[in-house]
Nucleic acid binder design. Structure first.
Length: 574
RNA sequence: CGGGGCGUAGCUCAGCCUGGUAGAGCGCUAGCUUUGGGAGCUAGAUGUCGCACGUUCGAAUCGUGUCGCCCCGACCA
């Protein structure tokens, strides 16, 4: 391919609406263009990379025994009402009507459609297990699209769905996908980490997320380098050491804390560590007020809390509601004397000599012994884990990182198969719902995450497996016939060996082309000009690495060998 | 949806406060010179100043409304 015949609109300056580096580079290198918030076009160069990611996914899914299908993006809304998920997902669904005024939706995911297929055409245990996948466009009306392809409203996803006869059998399908995912991301040149995750709106019992570690990632995760424990913050647990507060037999007493509605202020005023405070938050769990207690230096993990309270809708109570249930404005709530349910974090078990709100304006209580002075309905773990907390397995301090979720595997169980009546008959002739799993990869997000992980100050540094081209030939003397003959010979020689080459044949100054080459980030750059040819050599440079000079007659074999070397360095046999 | 910011040439931005009818750099077109890390000179082309209404003799500039985009929160591949 010749650059002059291609379409690579590069930009010297950074577009103002791109915040993170990978998004900036995708725009600057001419990979994508924005149509509207969360809606992107792939330009020729970007599409080449995307297709390579897709191809790696396809090969590994096939290797794992999954069968490719393609389902409609547009679906009748009624199907979603039958599974009971329309209600849950209305906020992200695009709704439309067909010409007969029938309600349709654009699919944000495909559990419903695939379960309908399985239910219709799978009847016997003899047909199981089976796993279907597709690479298809999804639509989600995200509350806030962000960071280019990272969170788009229309995006390409690989989604797979497994069907098994039992939970035990489903574990095998899950593991097969987990293993396939590790291979896929490795082959894409990415360093990913599988972390325990919450299963969210998709439902199900167990799940792992595949995270690309990156500062710009939207997810917080904690990891223990000792035990290998790794979890999304939404899900993460920590070992909770027993308290050993000094005994405090004094009765609780009120202290004046005028205008001090924050733990920070009271902590400073009473010269007590925030950890000695009982933070009291009033939540509405499915509309029911409940007091939630945790150490003063801690934050709530609302995902964990919602599970503890077994509620579907959880929100902080407004100031009015707080005043109604505690008798004081926010900032002075405490567990003592409350008539609503009180749940406490396990880190407060046996706390004594503590400080908390007095449920009276401008008053706090000190010398509080939680279980002596208040009625706690239950203790549970719902703190947000943070850096330094002990690992639940090894007890070592965990560290916090940020990551981009590029893949997610779930054990779904029979939620959908029951709702949509996807059953099979076993050896004994009994009917059972199929046991499902589902497995997603954000294809565009994976491509962008690769850039987020592989770049330098000059531009992208593509892993060769997903680079738009393997080699870029920069020609310095485009009007010189002898020079162009060398270029064309090398080009056709490499093409014949299956190496993908782009020639920058534009009539631009060398520096201009080098800058573009660095920005676009093709892994190997061959520079050919009269100056080198006079010495009988060409120049070979790995993106971001050193330059070597290669004699003309060895050019073809050396470049081809270097391509293979880079491919092998990725480290997974294909 | 709540909070914050921004809409002026293809891109990055100035002009707005203090109204007088639009600019720079890059990019684009042509020519000459240049040619190993985003060249120089010369000559050009390009704008419903996001949109609507209002105030005014006069609005990019002031007011109101509206649309769009970005950032922070809940959601997710």
């Amino acid at each position: 391919m010749r650059w002059s015949d291609y379409f690579i609109p590069t930009m010297k300056e950074t577009p103002q609406d791109a915040e993170i580096i990978s998004h900036q580079l995708m725009l600057r290198a001419g990979l994508i263009r924005k149509l509207s918030s969360g809606l992107y076009s792939y330009l020729p160069l970007g599409l080449r990379s995307l297709k390579k990611v897709e191809q790696i996914i396809r090969e590994e899914m096939n290797r794992a025994g999954a069968l490719e299908v393609l389902m409609p993006a547009m679906q009748p809304r009624e199907l979603w009402e039958r599974s009971g998920r329309y209600e849950k997902m209305v906020d992200v669904m695009f709704n439309l009507k067909d010409k007969n005024k029938r309600d349709m939706v654009l699919g944000p995911t495909h559990e419903e459609v695939i379960t309908e297929i399985a239910g219709r055409d799978i009847h016997s245990y003899r047909q199981l297990p089976i796993n279907f996948y597709q690479i298809q466009t999804k639509f989600r009306d995200e509350i806030r699209p962000r960071f280019g392809l990272m969170r788009a409203r229309e995006f390409i996803m690989k989604d797979a769905y497994s069907f098994d006869v039992s939970w035990e059998a489903a574990d095998g399908s899950y593991q097969a996908m987990y293993d396939a995912y590790e291979r896929i991301f490795k082959r894409c040149g990415l360093t990913v980490m599988a972390v325990e995750a919450d299963s969210g709106a998709i439902g199900g019992s167990q799940s792992h997320e595949f995270m690309v570690l990156a500062e710009a990632g939207e997810d917080g995760i904690v990891i223990c380098e000792e035990s290998g424990y790794a979890a999304n913050l939404e899900r993460a647990e920590a070992r909770i050491p027993p308290r050993n507060d000094p005994a405090d037999s004094m009765a609780a007493e009120e202290v004046e804390t005028p205008g001090m509605g924050t733990i920070k202020a009271v902590s400073k005023f009473l010269e007590q560590d925030p950890e000695r405070f009982i933070k009291t938050l009033i939540y509405l769990a499915d509309g029911q007020a409940v007091a939630v207690l945790l150490p003063g230096d801690r934050d709530v993990n609302e995902v964990k809390l919602a599970k503890v309270l077994a509620c579907t809708k959880l929100e902080m109570a407004g100031a009015e509601k707080v005043e109604e249930v505690t008798g004081a404005p926010p900032g002075f709530a405490g567990p003592v004397g409350l008539s609503i349910d009180v749940v406490a974090d396990l880190r407060l078990k046996d706390i004594q000599g503590a400080i908390t709100g007095a449920n009276v304006r401008d008053r706090h209580l000190r010398h509080v012994h939680l279980e002596r002075d208040a009625t706690v309905k239950s203790f549970a773990d719902f703190c947000l884990v943070r850096s330094g907390d002990p690992c639940p397995r090894s007890g070592h301090a965990m560290i916090e990182k940020r990551g981009v979720e590029v893949g997610h595997v779930f054990k779904l169980g029979s939620v959908y198969s029951e709702a949509l009546n996807a059953t099979f008959v076993d050896e004994a002739g009994d009917q059972h719902p199929m046991v499902m799993g589902c497995y997603g990869i954000g294809v565009g997000r994976t491509m962008q995450a690769a850039i987020e992980q592989c770049h330098d100050k000059d531009g992208i540094r593509w892993p060769i497996s997903i680079a738009p081209f393997h080699v870029e030939i920069v020609t310095l003397d485009t009007t010189d016939e002898a020079c162009m003959e060398v270029v064309n010979n090398l080009f056709s020689g490499l093409e014949a060996k299956g190496v993908e080459v782009i020639i920058d044949d534009r009539e631009e100054r060398p520096g201009f082309k080098f800058k573009d080459a660095d920005l676009v980030g093709i892994p190997l750059r061959v520079t050919i000009g009269n100056k080198g040819l006079a010495k009988g050599q060409i120049e070979l440079k790995v993106r971001g690495g050193d330059t070597v000079f290669v004699p003309l007659d060895e050019a073809l074999s050396t470049v081809a060998a270097k391509v293979s070397e880079l491919q092998e360095a990725i480290g997974v046999e294909c």
